[in-house]
Simulated assay, not measured.
Amino acid sequence: MELTQIIRDSLLKAVSYETYRNLIDKYEAEGTTSGEEQTEERVQYTALNQKRYKRLDKTISIAPEQADCIINFPKSICLLVITESWCGDAAQILPVVHKIAELNPKITMKLVFRDENELLMNQFLTNGGKAIPVVLFLDLEDKVLARWGSRPSVATQMVEAEKAKNGKLTPEFKEELQKWYNQDKGMTIVNDFVKILEDIKKK
Rank of each mutant, 00 (worst) to 15 (best):
M121K: 02
R151K: 07
Q92I: 14
G88F: 09
N72G: 02
L80F: 11
A91D: 07
P133R: 03
V43P: 01
E141P: 00
I107A: 11
N49V: 05
D68T: 12
A90M: 09
L140N: 07
H98T: 06
M158D: 02
Q44W: 00
A90K: 09
Y45I: 02
R114C: 07
F113I: 09
Q66C: 06
L138N: 00
V96A: 10
Q44E: 14
K165H: 12
T108H: 09
L79S: 03
P171N: 12
I82V: 15
E116W: 03
N117L: 05
E160Q: 13
I60F: 02
M158Q: 14
W86T: 12
E116N: 13
L125W: 02
F124N: 01
L94A: 08
L56G: 00
L136T: 03
E141K: 12
A47L: 04
A161D: 13
V144N: 00
Q50E: 04
E141H: 06
D57Q: 01
P95A: 11
Q50M: 10
A47W: 04
L94V: 13
M158A: 05
A47F: 04
F113P: 03
N166A: 13
R147P: 00
K130Q: 05
A131C: 06
C87M: 04
K143C: 05
I70Y: 04
S153F: 03
W86P: 10
W148A: 03
C69N: 08
A90W: 12
N49E: 05
L80A: 04
A90L: 08
I107M: 14
G149D: 02
L48S: 12
Y45L: 15
L111A: 05
A90G: 14
F124S: 01
R151V: 01
A63C: 03
P105S: 13
W148E: 01
F113E: 09
D89R: 08
L169M: 15
K75D: 12
T170A: 09
N117D: 02
R114V: 08
W148C: 00
Q44R: 14
L80E: 00
R147I: 06
A146P: 00
E102A: 15
P105R: 09
V81H: 00
P152D: 03
H98Q: 15
L119F: 06
D68W: 06
N117H: 10
A63K: 08
M109W: 03
I71C: 04
K163L: 14
R151A: 09
V135P: 00
E141T: 08
N166F: 13
E160P: 04
L79A: 06
L56E: 01
W86E: 08
M121S: 07
Q92T: 13
L94D: 07
V112P: 08
V96F: 14
T83W: 01
E65N: 07
E141R: 05
D57E: 12
Q66R: 10
G167Q: 02
E160A: 15
L169T: 14
M158Y: 14
G167N: 11
I107V: 11
V81A: 10
E84Y: 07
L140S: 09
K163S: 06
